[in-house]
């Protein structure tokens, strides 16, 4: 039984990304990683001269406090729209609604499913 539980846990850890998560991962790499870091922890290459540190997307507590709608709004309309830093730009010109949804799915994977 114990073996089954361990195997089950291992399987959960190794679960491949869903289709939406994979699309979100690609979008995250392209549009977000420069500031939020390739691993999402907030240490992107643009950070050293930034006045405000980008959000750590692996911070489970902080990210769990945000709804999917809030995350989508921050991406679509920028940080200012959700009372956060103006350094986070609005991506509504670059990303479709579906792409923004995929990014939110990937953010949930980053923060809370790893």
């Amino acid at each position: 039984m114990k073996t089954m539980v361990v195997l089950g846990m291992l399987a959960a850890l190794c679960t491949p990304l869903s289709y939406a998560e994979t699309r979100g991962e690609q979008l995250y790499e392209t549009y977000c990683s420069q500031c939020h870091g390739l691993n999402g922890a907030g240490g992107g290459i643009n950070v050293p001269d930034m006045a405000v540190q980008p959000r750590d997307h692996t911070d489970t507590a902080e990210m769990s406090a945000r709804t999917d709608e809030e995350l989508a709004k921050a991406i679509r309309e920028g940080g200012k729209a959700v009372n956060k830093s103006v350094l986070m730009p609005a991506w509504d010109s670059n990303l479709s609604d579906r792409q923004i949804d995929d990014l939110v799915v990937y953010l949930r994977h980053l923060c809370c499913e790893q």
Binding site: E29, T30, S33, Q34, G37, L38, N39, G43, G44, I45, V47
Partner: peptide, 19 residues
């Protein structure tokens, strides 16, 4: 400074990403 597609020229470390 980080090329035309920066993620292709970044390495991650515990202190953050580097070119």
């Amino acid at each position: 400074p980080a090329g035309v597609y920066p993620p292709a020229h970044i390495s991650s470390s515990p202190d953050g990403d580097e070119i």
